[in-house]
Design a protein around this nucleic acid. Sequence first.
DNA 1: AGCTCTTATGAATCATTGA
DNA 2: GTCAATGATTCATAAGAGC
Lengths: 282, 282
Amino acid sequence: MTVKTGIIQGDCAEMLKTFDNNSFDLIVTSPPYADRRIHTYGGVKPEQYVEWFLPRSEEFLRVLKPTGSFVLNIKEKVENGERHTYVIELILALKKQGWLWTEEYIWHKKNCYPGKWPNRFRDAWERCLHFTKSRKFKMNQETVMVPMGDWAGARLKSLGKNDVVRYDSQVGSGFGKNIANWMERTMAYPTNVLHLATECGNKNHSAAFPSALPDWFIRLFTDEGDWVLDPFAGSGTTLDVARRLGRNSVGIEILPDYCEIARQTANVEQFQLLEERRAYVG
Amino acid sequence: MTVKTGIIQGDCAEMLKTFDNNSFDLIVTSPPYADRRIHTYGGVKPEQYVEWFLPRSEEFLRVLKPTGSFVLNIKEKVENGERHTYVIELILALKKQGWLWTEEYIWHKKNCYPGKWPNRFRDAWERCLHFTKSRKFKMNQETVMVPMGDWAGARLKSLGKNDVVRYDSQVGSGFGKNIANWMERTMAYPTNVLHLATECGNKNHSAAFPSALPDWFIRLFTDEGDWVLDPFAGSGTTLDVARRLGRNSVGIEILPDYCEIARQTANVEQFQLLEERRAYVG
DNA sequence: AGCTCTTATGAATCATTGA
DNA sequence: GTCAATGATTCATAAGAGC
């Protein structure tokens, strides 16, 4: 089966209406503001951000499968010396809309923008808010495991008495089996803090979004052949990653110029007709 | 001038009433988290947390100097598979109370609690919310500069960067300029992400947060001789750090047992009388 | 003193069982 | 039904012991 990758030019609030319920396994996006592209959507003020977002997230909720995930990469800006509250207000509003706020991952930007201000340090992190439709959702934890620290080597040589004691107190049966599992382990599950560098490519767009970020969430929350949506596709980083990982994807982007870039970099076909579009996702 | 360190046994909501307005330069604390430490604090329900907190933060607002800072280390728990919203509701409520939400620092816990669950990874971060009374506040950025590269290796308690800065300012022209240049080349300002491990020593009490955390904020937001308040002092980590950094401090702790530990570990005198207490702070 | 190795434990969360 | 108690799961760190 070949992988489908498509980009649609338009506002996701409108364009998603043509998609069926429960069409996507994952929605991962970095909406305007993290991107500073809000002006392309008509210059939404921070005070109006929640109001602007909700009709769109309502469509996200509809087109996402019950086992799917919605990952929202966002960070509030500083206004008049203060962190603005529109992001945390958005969390509350999305919960009211029916989303479950399952987790908040932190993207630690190892090489963040330089700068110096009298009242704050450089901003080196962004939120990756994880929303779901239900408490049971798809999560492939093994796909994102990381090598254990060096301490594991010493651990393998001889098992500490502590392990035995703790094990004793809790179980009693199945003693040997679990110890064996432990000793064979070289990989560990990650935490909810992602250490990724920003990409500093010389592209024509302002994509602060490194491909490693959608990569991580796509592997974690989808299988091959699943459908991924990026409703604020920008230059198509998410689509490109999805295609390389063998996932079908749809991107929606309001700016024709970005759509053009996305089609070039991500080998993306542009959906032209509703019939075509529906056919891909159906 | 000698450094004063005191601990008061009681509920900060009551005990702070005896302090004058604008008494403290920094309030740094890690309050009891909702439903945690039930055996010690009685376990405030998440739904009641904001309501429980506000009368106390109102006193904080009163006793903090206009140029002071309030650093709140907190993290919401998971309840029924979801992150609870009481912390972000608290942010909104504190703003309404008159605080400025100046910044949110992230404490990345390098050694977080182990565990495996079907719907989430290990929680490796906590919020350090920075509130102020005004847009102009005291911030000594040079005191927390770190060697170029990773600043995880910088154990701030052992490095005397404070001394370097003070020496620089005292000597003035020639030599001071050299030091300034040297610092500019080899030291960097940190970001708003702090990489610290929790302390796992064999103490008689559970250290809520590592001493490096209050250390960092006390250096950053106070000068020597300033006054630091920890209204949920616990075993007195903040007080101990403040004393070692040459800052006066007051801790308030509701549990007599913790007060006892604090007095021992932090060389703390217990305030007994109102007159005494006022005298120290006045 | 400066290594290596050992050991305890930390603001945890979920599934299951029993009242 | 709900709610509380218990068991299962798991990793990185620093203090301390040993050489």
